[in-house]
């Protein structure tokens, strides 16, 4: 059996930082490419949203919000300034931060998949709301598109969550001394 790389000790901070940044870059690249099987009617999983959910379920509110702003900025840089992803991701981070602290949700990959499903829908709702409030596009077009987009991205995102949950959870989980 392979020896597990221990990245949780204090003197491996730089390795941890590198892995976090590296995982983010991988998520950004995955957003841009279409690999058959990783897409459903042309929609790819919201990799950055999964990253955020896995990060914030074990973090406190402020760490989650900072991560949400950063990811929102990066996602916007890949698309354009309107509609912004920052707002949706901040709301997602508000809902998911420290979700395992209350004993209602058990910590496992199934619950995380369900959280990602719900959060993908919330994220798409925020984008659809931005379109409806700030543009002149007919509402019926936006919300018909919304049905397709939200369901597809929620399904495909939650399907592929287990794939990145285990490596990301290992990289992103807070250190014991950070938890206090």
């Amino acid at each position: 059996m392979l020896k597990r790389l221990d990245i949780s000790s204090k003197n491996k901070d730089w390795l941890r930082l590198f892995l976090i940044v590296f995982s983010l870059i991988i998520c950004c690249l995955l957003l841009l490419v279409r690999i058959s099987g990783l897409e459903l009617i042309g929609i790819t999983p919201n990799w950055l949203l999964m990253w955020l959910v896995i990060w914030s379920v074990k973090r406190n509110l402020w760490q989650s919000i900072v991560a949400a702003i950063c990811l929102g900025l990066i996602w916007d840089s890949l698309t354009g300034f309107f509609p912004s992803h920052i707002l949706g991701l901040i709301i997602v981070s508000l809902f998911t931060s420290n979700v395992y602290k209350d004993k209602y949700v058990k910590e496992d990959v199934i619950s995380l998949t369900l959280i990602v499903f719900g959060m993908a829908i919330i994220n798409e709702t925020i984008i659809a709301l931005q379109y409806s409030i700030q543009t002149q596009i007919p509402l019926i077009d936006i919300w018909l598109n919304y049905q397709k987009n939200s369901l597809t991205s929620a399904i495909i995102s939650s399907l592929w969550t287990p794939l990145i949950y285990y490596p990301l959870d290992y990289i992103l989980k807070p250190l014991p001394f950070e938890k206090k």
């Binding site: 950063c70 990811l71 990066i74 840089s77």
Partner: peptide, 27 residues
């Protein structure tokens, strides 16, 4: 935490200003 938080927002802001050129170049 404050230091790393501000640093990561600054880095993300920089990526936003350059319109993700780093990511597309990597791709």
């Amino acid at each position: 935490q404050l230091f790393w938080g501000i640093l990561s927002i600054l880095v993300a802001w920089q990526i936003y200003l350059t319109q993700g050129s780093f990511i597309s170049e990597t791709l």
